[in-house]
Amino acid sequence: MNKDWPLYEVFIRSKNGLSHKHVGSLHASDAAMALENARDVYTRRSEGVSIWVVKAVDILASDPGDSEFLFEPATDKIYRHPTFYDVPDEVKHM
């Protein structure tokens, strides 16, 4: 029964040269079935050339409550961006 069937997250590469992107999830009895079902559920209109399925329980996600200390330190480090630095106008592109 589904009760025992793990949840798999599905990632699809839409074409070579692009990375796999999360598209949704589904339940399956094992990884092989997850892959087959992902093909039927998420690629009915040529959306992809490659599929990854990953058990949802194997994904460790950051806690939204930690967002402040995880991500905010980056916002005041404007010296990490090119526009922080002055170059003479004569230099057209750098």
Binding site: M1, N2, D4, W5, S29, D30, M33
Partner: peptide, 13 residues
């Protein structure tokens, strides 16, 4: 079908 799929997955694992 669900039972068979579960049994197959269990045996494989």
């Amino acid at each position: 079908v669900r039972e068979a799929a579960s049994a197959h997955a269990a045996r494989k694992s």
